[in-house]
Amino acid sequence: MPTKIEKDAISGQNTTGHEWDGLKELNTPLPRWWLYTFYACILFALVWMVMYPSIPIRGLTGVTGYIAREAGTAELAEARTRAEPMMARLRAATPAQIAADPELRAYAIAGGRVAFANNCAACHGAGGQGATGGYPTLADDDWLWGGTLADIRTTITHGIRNQDDDEARTSVMPRFLGDGMLNRAQIQDVAQHVLGLSGLATDQAAAARGATVFAENCVSCHGEQGEGNQELGAPRLSDRIWLNGPDVRTIEAFISNPRLGVMPAFGQRLDGATINMLAVYVHSLGGGR
């Protein structure tokens, strides 16, 4: 406590009476209104604590009943209401109609980008870059089940080889080794032939032997020149895009025991407008037909 208040000779001011190792402090009084402003701030904080949730105990929400989560939910609902007229138009239109209307297209691509990140990017990668091991790139010009807006929409709606949707796209490639349809030598030959379809064969003799095996076992789905069949989701084998990688071991393994891709039926998860937006967005990534 102040013990000895002195007058400072130079400034003529009194000291506060405090002394620290010989240092004394001049008393320069704070304006009283400043003090009251400080009290007012404390009062404001107390009122705030009563009005708004401030104490982390369940149930103590403050007399206004404000809860940030509920306010956020309400805001989100309001945003949905505001977006509804646009969503209704997107729901009613076909993807082709959306793509033709600049306003709808811009909205669909922006909305599709978000929906894609939420639902599709886990397998297909951001921007549809795909992943080795059966997750197709969506930004290239090669399509397993068709790359028109309508095809993309169907694929997204019903999915591929899933158990949930009767209209899911489906096809099966036999396990040529696992089911004993071909032996190892035949599989090695046909793998060379498949590589040869895009000029990558390393063993021409094996590739020639494999042509017969290919003609007997593969052409019904993949076509005589390996051109593929989008009706069956049979990949084109004669291009430079490889779903599982272009090395001979991978191809042999796939022919022996294929691991076929599965995609959920998003028609059961997302509403029609979102699916239309996704179709337009995926189509716009660069490969759309």
């Binding site: 990668g125 921007g127 549809g128 870059q129 795909g130 790139t137 290239d140 090669d142």
Partner: peptide, 16 residues
């Protein structure tokens, strides 16, 4: 940035 580039079926390379 994703994809950095796209390989097309004819072997061409595309950037967006």
């Amino acid at each position: 940035r994703a994809p950095l580039f796209v390989r097309l079926s004819d072997g061409g390379i595309r950037n967006a």
